[in-house]
Nucleic acid binder design. Structure first.
Length: 545
RNA sequence: GAGCUCGUAGCUCAGUAGGUAGAGCAACGCCCUUUUAAGGCGUGGGUCCUGGGUUCGAAUCCCAGCGAGCUCACCA
């Protein structure tokens, strides 16, 4: 519990103070405090009331809070109480609270919880303040608080000791208040449209619905290995087979992959399915949904993210091919012709020329701004990777997708829907009726990253079985992210899944966008951290003396 | 998994031509009845992340490890 002798010593001092507090007739750990108002109530109700009005009609309140600042002045003193993320000043003077009350005030420390009752007034500088008549001790902070001006700045400590972060950095608290608003708005949106909220298994015998490595666990009584789910997709579609035409689920997914500013091993996913809808319907719904959530959370569709103002009320829609042509960097030479995506040979030649052109530009260090140059070098390396994969025999659709990720995705700052994906990268999507090389699928982006993925669902059980078998082949070749066979899911499809559109949205990322958070860890209360080394202080202590 | 950067008091941070550590806040004592990053006087507090190495001497230089941040890779 203690990180140092300083903390141990402080703890002992505070315990002594608790004893003193008890001697004053107060409980060290009382069970409740009957507050008449929250701090928010007080500020909302009397925040604008003038000093004269407060004197003419005396208002008495009882409020509780944590002491975040304390300023003693001889036989009087101030303190700042914080409760519910808001602050209210109190004024304690000996002639108002009596000797016992003032003795208690002097035993208070930063971080303590107290309750006060008294009347409202304004100080000389105009600040709304409680003139305390009775002071009630509620709980003691036995450890010292972070520096009061800067708060807790150490990013690691903010994640590991979120409980301190939350009450010292109110900005951090605000992010999680907004996160709750995101969830509420999502539910409201779908509830109003007749979707049923459901909960499907988090522990699954077959971890399906996405390409990712799962976490493994074990049920003892049944002696059965289980996986934490990587997606709810296959269960939600079973429900549509069962006649729940519109369903949604907001819950955690678990993927045994790397950690980054955009990835946490457990993350929150919204998935929804709508019978009789296709991907065009979902595009429309998505644009409405994101704008609705933004307005519900921030009161505006505009959000500041990473130095950009993003307008979530205005979307553009591009096919993947159009997007590649539109975002093609001029430094990479001529844009690929619309037909260049159809043949592996033509496509490879185009890539080869682009690399050569980028290579040449990379040498001209004097003509180009350093930032743009770094960007172009990243693009060059990525294009080279795409070219290399393509030469090794990657299907052309896969290469087109990889190229898209290299030259387009990082630059999709304003909200954009990219649609018509190559079939090779979309094993659960339905092909376009007039173009079997492409599927009815879209992803949408903002702030430079992917927010969601949607498609018209494959509902042919024979085709689905075939695709699972192909995935098994990939698995045998060593791809441990390939889908597993799910016979029961194929059986469900065999009962008949109506034409259905489905979509998944990363709730953490949406929250990042709406709160201006650059790291996913800033929107997850307790992000996964590496195990800390055992502190020597905590376990030794008898080794030497 | 790779590259770069960082790790000094409870917290926020200073501290290199290598000479064994400092400020503010917090803590402790005293003064102060309208302060608000309150103020004044005084005091205590450090395995300088850990372990090696170089050196007469290491917070500082080198190596390894641990932890973190950023970028990249896998992925959403």
């Amino acid at each position: 519990m203690f990180d140092s002798e300083f903390e141990r010593g402080l703890f002992d001092l505070r315990r002594a103070k608790l004893t003193e507090i008890e001697k004053l007739g107060q409980a060290a750990y009382p069970n409740q405090f009957p507050a008449s108002h929250t701090v928010h109530d007080v500020r909302a109700t009397w925040g604008e009331t003038t000093s004269e009005e407060l004197e003419a009609n005396r208002v008495t309140v009882a409020v509780a809070g944590r002491i975040m600042a304390i300023r003693a002045q001889g036989k009087a003193g101030f303190a700042t109480l914080q409760q519910g993320g808001e602050r209210l000043q109190i004024y304690v003077r000996q002639d108002a609270v009596g000797e016992q009350g003032f003795a208690l005030y002097k035993l208070l420390d930063l971080g303590d919880h107290i309750g006060v009752s008294g009347y409202l007034f304004r100080t000389r500088t105009g600040e709304l303040t409680v003139h305390v008549e009775r002071l009630t001790f509620l709980a003691k902070a036995m450890l010292s608080l972070p520096e009061k001006y800067h708060g807790l700045a150490d990013v690691e400590l903010r994640y590991r000791q979120r409980y301190v972060d939350l009450f010292t950095n109110l900005d951090s608290r605000e992010v999680f208040v907004k996160r709750a608003k995101v969830l509420r708005a999502l539910r409201q949106f779908f509830d109003e449209r007749g979707y049923l909220e459901v909960e499907t298994p988090m522990m699954q015998q077959v971890a399906g619905g996405a390409a990712a490595r799962p976490f493994r666990t074990h049920h003892n009584a049944l002696d059965m290995d289980l996986f934490l789910r990587i997606a709810p997709e296959l269960y939600l579609k079973r429900l549509v087979v069962g006649g729940l035409d519109r369903v949604y689920e907001i819950n955690r997914n678990f993927r045994n992959e790397g950690i980054s500013t955009q990835h946490n091993p457990e993350f929150t996913m919204l998935e929804f399915y709508q019978a009789y809808a296709n991907y065009h319907d979902l595009m429309q719904l998505t644009e409405e949904l994101i704008e609705f959530v933004a307005r519900a959370v921030n009161g505006t569709a505009k959000t500041e993210f990473n130095g950009h103002t993003i307008d979530l009320a205005h979307w553009q829609r591009l096919t993947m091919r159009e997007a590649i042509r539109q975002f093609w960097p001029e430094e990479a030479g001529a844009k690929p012709a619309p037909t260049a995506f159809d043949s592996a040979q033509v496509f490879q030649a185009r890539l080869h020329a682009a690399i050569a052109s980028l290579e040449k530009v990379a040498g001209e260090t004097t003509r180009i701004a350093p930032e743009r140059l770094a960007e172009l070098k990243t693009v060059r390396d990525a294009v080279a990777g795409v070219y290399y994969d393509s030469m090794k025999g990657a299907p052309v659709g896969k290469s087109v997708y990889n190229l898209f990720e290299a030259v387009v995705e990082p630059f999709l700052i304003q909200p954009t829907i990219i649609y018509d994906y190559p079939v090779e990268v979309s094993p659960l999507s339905k092909a376009k009726p007039d173009d079997p090389a492409h599927v009815e699928r879209f992803e949408f982006f903002a702030g430079g990253f992917e927010l969601g993925n949607a498609f018209s669902e494959l509902n042919d059980p024979v085709e689905q079985h075939k695709r699972f078998e192909q995935q098994l082949g990939e698995r045998d070749r060593g791809d441990d992210e390939a889908h597993q066979m799910d016979e029961d899911y194929v059986r469900a499809l065999a009962y008949g899944l109506p034409p259905t559109g489905g979509e998944g949205i990363g709730v953490d990322r949406l929250t990042m966008l709406l709160t201006g958070s650059k790291s996913i860890r800033d929107v997850i209360l307790f992000p996964l951290m590496r195990k800390q080394q055992e502190s020597e202080n905590r376990d030794q202590g008898t080794g030497t003396n």
